[in-house]
Design a protein around this nucleic acid. Sequence first.
RNA 1: CGCGGGGUAGAGCAGAGGCAGCUCGUCAGGCUCAUAACCUGAAGGUCGCACGUUCGAGUCGUGCCCCCGCAACCA
Length: 484
Amino acid sequence: MNKNFYVTTPIFYPTGVPHIGTAYNVFIADTLARYYRQKLGKENTFFLTGTDEHGANIAKAAEAQGKTPQEYVDEYAAKYQEVWQGVNLSHDYFIRTTDPRHEKFAQELIQKSFDNGDIYEGSYEGLYCESCEAYYTEADLVDGKCPNHPTKTPVFTKEKNYYFKLSKYQDFLLNLYAERPDFVQPAKWAAYVRGLVEAGLQDIPVTRANVKWGVPVPFDPEQTIYVWYDALPNYLSTLTFPEFQGYEEKFWPVANHVVGKDIIKFHAILWPAMLKSAGYEVPQHVLVHGFFTINGQKIGKSNNNAIDPRDLAAKYGNDVVRYALLSEFQVGNDGDFNIDRLKVKYEELANSWGNLLARVVHLANNKEVEISNTANVEPEFLTKLEDLAAKYTQHIEVKELFEALQTVGQITEWANKYIDEQKPWEKDKSPEDVALALNNLSVLLAKVNELYAPFLPESAAKATEALQKREKIILFPKIEDEAK
RNA sequence: CGCGGGGUAGAGCAGAGGCAGCUCGUCAGGCUCAUAACCUGAAGGUCGCACGUUCGAGUCGUGCCCCCGCAACCA
């Protein structure tokens, strides 16, 4: 069992602001981070997110707004941080790839691979559109014109750049997957990745000749480092920053990368190969999540459903937005989401957990019995509770967040049945029986609060406080539907 | 022959060889401590279609149908 835990989100490309889909990814990471902080201690857990700030698309977006690239990324990095703070994200650091310390690290990393002979000079050729600063294939063109610039004709261009010998690492990767079947989680994505690697790997270009907004290639300053050799190293570069002294030893390679299914190849194939090439250990796990649609539509500006997670949180609370997403689909699966589902989830919590808390506290106060006495819990009751808690732990440790939440649901369901059987409100119940039942339930609630804490941090804190103070609160108040 | 994901009760989702399951919704009861909450029971499915393997198939094999990604804003 590892003593330390390191979790990362991808670093996001700031061409827009975070929406509910982006938030899903960071919620998964945040939940894991909170779980491990609880388990291993704050100082033994590290949670990293950030922004990927180089590249032609950033330069273009900046120009379109009449800004320098630096001004542009400063602004968007700030927006990201604002949103994450707004949803109570608990990241320990926000890395930006324009941080000079990161740039230096990226240069050192690519230099190491170059020195090892894993990077060689080659050329890239294709139909180049000057306005897009991008290459197209014949099939991409519309009537011979650029698909994005109907007046421009992409011209055949050949540019020098450098390639990484990814093909060389096929056996290394297949061995890695064989030795560590859970390197990619969940299993169905591991199978997918293995299939891709078995099918064969091609070397990939890792520098660009025509992109100025990027990190210069140390062995050829005419070139800049292309996206992956700049972005992926953030997971490691941050750990080398002076304020994180000792972190590299502590948190590498116990890294867990939470990624969407679209960038699985880069994290599960390219990144381990890059690391191996440069003499580093590969990370512990790559956790792949699926995408969800909103009312059946893909999330995006054109569908006008790129919801700011803070808008939902304003009404339902941060906790419930996270809970709704994490309890709706298994990690790795796609799904659909909408406001009605969110409401259902909210009521689910209010009626099980919230209501249970209110019942127990209220009864305990009315009957004036002692609660929260762990020593007095009925042994059978305690055993059952511990069994369910253990089941939760098993799930969450293999990142089955959906299943872990279901297990907590089982506990509250059981508790509601138990309280109905015991009927501690009846007048002819012996005071001893009432005290025993309510004490059992209070200990159960304390456990539920603990298990929910990584998923619903704000609510769990409130519930814990209320239970301790024996104060009756409404954890999830009824939400009035706005008048139509 | 492009690649991949998916098609299980009205809705949303689990299950991956051995009597079809969960949440919500519906109907009928119960309870009254509690946030009109909670508990019990019922109705509702030929598990996309067909063929095959098997004592036995949502679950394995083959063929087919349908939906969704793989081009763009976009995780």
